[in-house]
Design a protein around this nucleic acid. Sequence first.
DNA 1: GCGACAATGTGATAACTGTCACAGCCTAAC
DNA 2: GTTAGGCTGTGACAGTTATCACATTGTCGC
Lengths: 213, 213
Amino acid sequence: MKTKEHKIPEATIKRLSTYVNYLGRLGTDSNPVISSEILGESCQVSPAQIRKDLSYFGEFGVRGVGYDTKKLEAEIKDILGINHNWPTTIVGVGKLGQALLNFDFFRNHGFRIITAFDSDPNKIGTEAANGVTIQSISDIEKCVREEKISIGIITTPVAAAQEVADKLVSGGINGILNFAPIKVRVPETITLRNVSITSELDNLAYLLTQKKR
Amino acid sequence: MKTKEHKIPEATIKRLSTYVNYLGRLGTDSNPVISSEILGESCQVSPAQIRKDLSYFGEFGVRGVGYDTKKLEAEIKDILGINHNWPTTIVGVGKLGQALLNFDFFRNHGFRIITAFDSDPNKIGTEAANGVTIQSISDIEKCVREEKISIGIITTPVAAAQEVADKLVSGGINGILNFAPIKVRVPETITLRNVSITSELDNLAYLLTQKKR
DNA sequence: GCGACAATGTGATAACTGTCACAGCCTAAC
DNA sequence: GTTAGGCTGTGACAGTTATCACATTGTCGC
Ligand SMILES: NC(=O)c1ccc[n+]([C@@H]2O[C@H](COP(=O)([O-])OP(=O)(O)OC[C@H]3O[C@@H](n4cnc5c(N)ncnc54)[C@H](O)[C@@H]3O)[C@@H](O)[C@H]2O)c1
Ligand SMILES: NC(=O)c1ccc[n+]([C@@H]2O[C@H](COP(=O)([O-])OP(=O)(O)OC[C@H]3O[C@@H](n4cnc5c(N)ncnc54)[C@H](O)[C@@H]3O)[C@@H](O)[C@H]2O)c1
């Protein structure tokens, strides 16, 4: 894979995710080749944008023809780094944590949730999903280190989020996906993304309010 | 509220959501006034960015002093339109839908989930949460119209998402928040936001991959 | 009342991101 | 082999968003 030096827009990465998602759902038999125009229609992105996004990483198409569907899917997975299984853990097996644990999509998509942690004694030792047993939060540092877990997903209440993040970090985690609505603080070396479902709703409310005025 | 004509960056709206969220969690007694510097530290945004964001909508601070915490919170809620309760419905009461239904935060935050719909006969008629009874999907159009529901949250499987969106639209919905990983199609007049949890994880994987290379 | 101070509000500027048009390249048909 | 047609890849341009510096304006102590 040719990775050019330029910094890649975050929006490009988000769109690549959309593309690969759509390509994966496409019957490769009936659509062995796809053009940026057709792909763009499904993903609601302009054809030029798609070509530009891909051009950051190399040349994957054939001029006059289009892209080999299966090959393009593989290439994007390679770019995103979801062509292997990231060892992942979920911390806080509440409503949201349960939903994520049971979300099959992840498994077919480059992530392998291999452990789950909670502080509730009633939950510890029970099976959360797919053969994953909930472990005590006090074992998390050791476990992250020993199982070489790369990604930690935080779905604890706000009050516990920072503390959990600290434990993940000291266990040697590489990246954190945080669903608690605060910006947790981690060292520079850790990759962190905060997911704010609330802000999506707020944004919707804003747009609706604008429309009314 | 003074709303200037300029188009507001989407990123600004997202940050406003962060600000208001943080302000709401702040003890107003101990912090009657807050500066852009302090707020910025908590929200991990530069002070200048905060002032710029707010300046799109008016002047809310006092020079030499800062912002009245409580007042600023109210002003931002007003800007975002989360100072009243949007009648909201959830379609698809599975794992994720359940999590959202039980998420107290929404209720204290401008949204009132008043109905829930599913197609599963075993679920219809049971209580999902907080006194919300699951209704049959076949009643959705009538109900949206009669209850004047503004916002529809889609948490059905991919296969049903477009169909559900169509029903919401024909019932007269104003806005849709879609959690299914496809871009549903709606008329121009409907405000739509797609939430992609998957793409957040993909983004994390990408960043981690970059770090390794 | 006045001066020192502190933090906002904003125009100018820099950085980033998306759009467009077309050159370049491949395929296929004859 | 040659030509017509079609779709990619990309440089130039336009539009958008963030950063910066500082003028502005309010507070407080004396
Ligand atoms: N439910 C939603 O729809 C939703 C949406 C957006 C964001 N969130 C956020 O996600 C987080 C979880 O939400 P939820 O609805 O699943 O909450 P929940 O209360 O159902 O689950 C929280 C879980 O975390 C566990 N926990 C608490 N402290 C812990 C600790 N120190 N270590 C390990 N585990 C701990 C609890 O035992 C519980 O099982 C919250 O921060 C919430 O704000 C939730
Ligand atoms: N679970 C997660 O963590 C997660 C994360 C990101 C996105 N998503 C997306 O959210 C959606 C829901 O995920 P989930 O895990 O809750 O799935 P789920 O299977 O647990 O729930 C889906 C629910 O939708 C109902 N349903 C199906 N067809 C319907 C229809 N036509 N009308 C009304 N209801 C219908 C089902 O009866 C079920 O109750 C999926 O599209 C999924 O891709 C889920």
